[in-house]
């Protein structure tokens, strides 16, 4: 029986990929390039954030231009908690997720009453609002941002101050969340949001409460983005308003498109390509954005399926 919604991952390839990711720090240590473990960690975190945006844009068809706000909300929340003495990652990171979810609830509740380009604009505007509020408040460090004095504590014999340990924790969270997402997308809720993407009007006309569905999806994505933000804050050791600039939202969208909107691993791939390219290019030129811009333009124009379909048709 045909299943157009099904995300299939070949067990062999998946196991190999996970194994490779597990072995990566060991391999990097062996060739004395352990510096790159932090980059790999950053790629995983942004891969997670981009995947959450892919859920919204690629699977549900909602073009949200303010995703960076949820990342920022999570990052600042985690930073404030750690600075305030709440050292535990078990508090800081879920709080980040909660902050992202709550902000997404507020933004989504208002924005989802609009459609099409108005939705894009209002999500952008909300993100700007959050950005400007954060910049204006001195307790949040204003333009300079805040220091995160140390990495959070996670217990269980794991020390997040070690880059390798941090990497493995992030990897575990990443794999877990992706597995949950896949389960979710392959089941009833996943069919429903993809139905919304395909024909929202008819979804409502056959009895789905589409507003509620879209909002749930939006909030879930906000939560994951907030979690990502919390992890970034801990990894970088600081948070700044630049995390929330609309160009950041744009870059997240670029990750989703480069990797493939509506493809399960699209966010992950896009993050890897963009952050990897940035790392490589910045050694050679300060004008790397030019290259990114040109590549993005070409990808967007030339993409054979047309990005408007947003679905990888798994034919037969």
């Amino acid at each position: 029986m045909r299943d157009s919604f099904h995300i299939s991952l070949s067990p062999g390839a998946t196991a190999a990929a996970v194994a490779a990711l597990v072995l990566l720090p060991i391999a990097l240590n062996a060739v004395d390039q352990s510096f790159y473990i932090v980059l790999a960690t950053r790629i995983l975190i942004f891969g997670l954030i981009a995947t959450s945006l892919n859920l919204v844009i690629g699977y549900a068809g909602m073009i949200s231009f303010g995703h960076a706000a949820f990342v920022g909300a999570g990052a600042y929340t985690a930073a404030l908690l750690i600075r305030g003495g709440f050292d535990s990652a078990w508090i800081a990171w879920p709080s980040g997720a909660l902050a992202g979810a709550l902000l997404a609830l507020v933004v989504g509740a208002v924005s989802l009453r609009t459609r099409g380009v108005y939705f894009i604009m209002i999500t952008l505007a909300f993100a700007q609002m959050v950005y400007y509020v954060i910049v204006s408040l001195k307790i949040l460090g204003g333009d300079d941002g805040l220091n995160v004095p140390h990495r959070p504590v996670i217990g269980l014999g794991v020390d997040l101050r070690s880059d390798a340990h941090f990497y493995y924790v992030v990897l575990a969270i990443f794999v877990l969340l992706l597995a949950v997402l896949r389960r979710f997308l392959n089941a009833g809720m996943g069919r429903a949001i993809q139905g919304i993407r395909d024909n929202e009007t008819r979804m409502e006309a056959i009895g789905f409460a589409t507003y509620r569905l879209k909002l749930s999806c939006f909030v879930a994505a906000g939560a994951v983005a907030g979690l990502g933000g919390g992890m970034i804050a801990a990894l970088n050791g600081f948070v700044s308003p630049s995390l929330l600039q609309w160009q950041q939202s744009g870059l997240l969208m670029v990750m989703v498109i480069l990797g493939g909107a509506g493809r399960f691993l699209g966010g992950m791939l896009g993050a890897a390509v963009l952050l990897g390219a940035d790392e490589i290019l910045s050694d050679y030129t300060t004008h790397g954005s030019l290259g990114v811009g040109i590549v993005l333009l070409l990808v967007v124009l030339v993409s054979p399926q047309g990005l408007s379909s947003l679905v990888r048709r798994q034919l037969g």
């Binding site: 380009v117 909107a261 030019l290 811009g293 333009l297 967007v300 990005l307």
Partner: peptide, 22 residues
């Protein structure tokens, strides 16, 4: 093309324009 495509293509233009000006 879809609005998403237009957003991304013109976002790319911003990047290109800024760098060229720079």
């Amino acid at each position: 093309r879809s609005h998403l495509t237009q957003v991304l293509a013109t976002f790319a233009l911003i990047l290109i324009a800024n760098e060229l000006v720079r």
